[in-house]
Amino acid sequence: MASEPLVELRNVSLAYGEGRERMVALGDATLSIEKGEFVAVVGPSGCGKSTLMKLVTGLLPPSTGTVLVHGREVTAPIPGVGMAFQNSTLMPWRTTRDNIMLPFEVVAPHKHRLRRHRAEYEAKAEALLASVGLAGFGDKYPWQLSGGMQQRCNVCRALIHEPEILMLDEPFGALDAFTREELWGVMQKLWLERRFTAVLVTHDLREAVYLADTVYVMSRRPGRIVKRRTIDLPRPRTLDTTFEPGFVEIVHELRERIQMEHA
């Protein structure tokens, strides 16, 4: 572990607005993410989790502090990321399949190959849709899908181009418990295969512990990182794992820390 971390945040803060409107959303975050690490961020609503995501990928410039990726300071959106935003950003004028294929149209080198290898890319999209339980929905428009189905598409679009860094902002929020747990398995399998670096924002502590190597707990707004917990449970984790004492203990530990924030 001597190599430098892939993502590093040093005393990063961010304030929205100016003058009297000014509001600090994220106060002083310091953390580092190794290449191939799966990180989960939990914390109370409005504490700056989504903001943190946008800072890491360079969508927002920090008010103070520095964000480093590959050791270089981030000043503009960085390449090689896939983002699933909290609000669905599927385009209503595109079918589900065309939505998912958007990264292929924009990201190099795919955008140069897409025209000639269209069938191959479409097969990829179909396979990914099938893996999240949406086989046969490629020709439907997003508004013809349920909220949970849209979220699954949103996740598919974020990872179809196999980005180096995957940012997931409450990706399974609108799903029922069963589908959600099924998708944890899908996500873990994908991660074990491809070993991308992932940052997951969630309100579900079991989800965080199931998927992540490291869980960060944030304080109330302005968010600071108040706890870092490494999860060294063996992989692959299964649903049975979630009932084991070791797992339950970690969840309790995290819950207690978050409850302190609400006290």
């Binding site: 969508l59 959106p77 390449p79 385009m91 149209e105 924009v106 990201v107 190099a108």
Partner: peptide, 19 residues
Amino acid sequence: EMRDLMRSLGASQWETLTK
């Protein structure tokens, strides 16, 4: 959010306009 999405994919102004 739509702009953020396109920016995160590294889309150019032109690509954002057309897509």
